[in-house]
């Protein structure tokens, strides 16, 4: 599940819960799912690996290499 999907589902759950139409059992179920999504979202936000790469070459020589941005001059 991507961050997009997780946060969208979480928003839907919170809105449903805040609507107050749910029976208690359904509310509890959604609450538990929501808590799992909160953890998932936080993990996704913290896990980004921060790779800066350059796409080099073309055709069969296509490859990625670490990218060093030029010093500003």
């Amino acid at each position: 599940m991507t961050y997009e999907e997780a946060i969208a589902r979480l928003e839907a759950l919170v809105q449903e819960l805040e609507g107050g139409e749910l029976p208690l059992a359904g509310a509890l179920e959604r609450f538990e799912e929501g808590m799992a999504l909160v953890k998932r979202c936080q993990a996704l936000l913290d896990e980004a690996e921060g790779k800066i790469e350059a796409l080099m070459g073309e055709g069969e020589s296509l490859r990625t290499e670490p990218f060093e941005p030029p010093a500003r001059g």
């Binding site: 946060i7 979480l10 928003e11 759950l13 919170v14 819960l17 805040e18 107050g20 749910l22 208690l24 509310a27 509890l28 609450f31 929501g34 808590m35 909160v38 979202c41 936080q42 936000l45």
Partner: peptide
């Protein structure tokens, strides 16, 4: 995410 977390907990308390 934090805001949704808070709203989630509060909504359950309200319920």
């Amino acid at each position: 995410v934090h805001e949704l977390d808070v709203r989630l907990r509060r909504s359950l308390l309200v319920r």
